[in-house]
Amino acid sequence: MVDTFSWWGIFSAIGVLTGIGITFGALLGMASVRFKGEENPLVEQIDALLPQTQCGQCGYPGCRPYAEAINQGDALNKCPPGGEATIHALADLLGREPAPLDGEASSEDTVAFIREAECIGCTKCIQACPVDAIIGAAKQMHTVIEDECTGCDLCVAPCPVDCIDMLPRAKPLNQWQPVINPSPLIASDRQPSRSEHARL
């Protein structure tokens, strides 16, 4: 027993392990500085999943602040324009439980429209627009750039003469989606197939 135990052995082992620890610690430290990857913090990833309408319906002044709030632990279900899809994507990213949407989901894509005859040129909607999609000047008629409008509704409330409407957005042909009815899985559910094709 006496042969196997020696203070020298213990100290040398501690010394060697400490040395290894310090060496590798230094190496890892250097590597983390030297090979620092492209920064992509969680906030960026959350922000990328939000629909960027900047509507403020979540209670924050834009998508980015809401992304920061989610990162701080705020609920995922405050984004009506994103709807269920966004909630699920966020839940997947953050490993949290998806919750039902807080508030009413917007049923369709809308765009703001100013009834130009009634516009008094007060510029209040211009100040409210988060994406600078309204052009005009004081006492001049205003109008909405349709392509830039995100349909966030923020210009509707400030208008003193209520001349802004939210209209459904026209869908271009290249965004058309085929309607596919999933076929019934159980053979007995099937109807004899009827032809939907043209007859003269």
């Binding site: 922000d47 939000l50 629909p51 960027q52 309408t53 900047q54 834009g62 998508c63 980015r64 988060p130 994406v131 600078d132 999609a133 830039e148 995100t150 290249n174 965004q175 989606q177």
Partner: peptide, 20 residues
């Protein structure tokens, strides 16, 4: 394709918001 268009649109709105 539609998803790509929507992502591009969201990015565009984001950049305009940041600019503002």
């Amino acid at each position: 394709r539609l998803k790509r268009i929507e992502t591009a649109k969201a990015d565009h709105a984001k950049h305009r918001f940041e600019f503002r």
